[in-house]
């Protein structure tokens, strides 16, 4: 429920912004912005339906945890 309210707020702000952008005929900005916005909206919807999104940090941990262990052993 909270996620939807926040999504609504963001969409409102985006709508206001797009109106002013389109008035200035800045098509390129609107297209790029809308594509990122779509990514964001997808993520919020995924969260709303409790789909588990993998965190980017888990990738970092996987790659660099061995490096950390190695360093700890080297400098322990």
């Amino acid at each position: 429920m909270q996620n939807m309210i926040i999504l609504l707020l963001f969409l409102l702000a985006a709508y206001v912004q797009y109106r002013s952008l389109l008035k200035k005929r800045e098509v390129r900005q609107v297209v790029v912005s809308i594509s990122f916005m779509a990514v964001g909206v997808c993520l919020v919807l995924l969260r709303e339906f409790h789909v588990k999104i993998p965190s980017p940090v888990s990738g970092i941990n996987l790659l660099f945890h061995p490096v950390d262990l190695f360093m700890t052993r080297l400098l322990g």
Binding site: E26, V30, M37, G40, V41, V44
Partner: peptide, 8 residues
């Protein structure tokens, strides 16, 4: 124009 999507 990118700020709001990035925020989300």
């Amino acid at each position: 124009s990118l700020l709001i999507p990035f925020g989300l």
